[in-house]
Design a protein around this nucleic acid. Sequence first.
DNA 1: CTATCATATGAACATATATTCATTTGTTTG
DNA 2: CAAACAAATGAATATATGTTCATATGATAG
Lengths: 119, 119
Amino acid sequence: MEQRDLPCCEENLIHSDAVERVRGLLPRDETLYDLAELFKIFGDSTRVKILYALLEGELCVCDIAKLMEVTQSAVSHQLRVLKTSKLVKFRREGKTVYYSLADEHVTRILSQGMEHIQE
Amino acid sequence: MEQRDLPCCEENLIHSDAVERVRGLLPRDETLYDLAELFKIFGDSTRVKILYALLEGELCVCDIAKLMEVTQSAVSHQLRVLKTSKLVKFRREGKTVYYSLADEHVTRILSQGMEHIQE
DNA sequence: CTATCATATGAACATATATTCATTTGTTTG
DNA sequence: CAAACAAATGAATATATGTTCATATGATAG
């Protein structure tokens, strides 16, 4: 049998009312996209580990690299990602750059996630 | 100049004390990995959209497909991912399968993320 | 100014992953 | 049982993304 365009549920939806109602309640596509982009940042073990480390206070790039056991370059790339998403902030002191968490949202998001996986 | 193994911060760390302290406080690598895996699930706009839709109540696969404007197959694949991570649950009613959110963690995680991007 | 060190960046590569297409499974109805 | 339909699955493809290597930038010390 060959596939049609959208054979799913035919033209008459099973619950067209529900679909229309929900459609009206959904955030804008752009918002949902941004939200997914945010969570994508948390969706990498190196970055999550960096964020968890920064919960304990500020650290310089090379300290983080030691902790993660990855290249300084890799850490630097990831810190740029975190910085761009406003999840971390930094201050320069001579040659050294110290990174720290930008705000408490990071903590809360991490906590909620941790709760879910630990139940 | 050629690159050495780990020229970063030489052997004597800048803050070896801080590094060691934080190392002791970090969750296990496996836990951090699982956490990243969880957030990865939220890190896709299709899945986030599905989860937001389910905030309003249960929906069948084909309704979700209509809402997302993607293939029934794509939705089904994503629902499997969400199901595996215990973010959604389902019940069967005849030919139709209804999906709904598994618990309130989903709601909380979405809320925290939304707060961050909207500030 | 030159050397050195901490960090950042660019390019390349390898891996992961989301979607589509085709097909299958499972259920209901004639 | 056969047809029809909702949902699930497998394979293939295209794209995204994380790491490494090499190099550049920016800052301090001699």
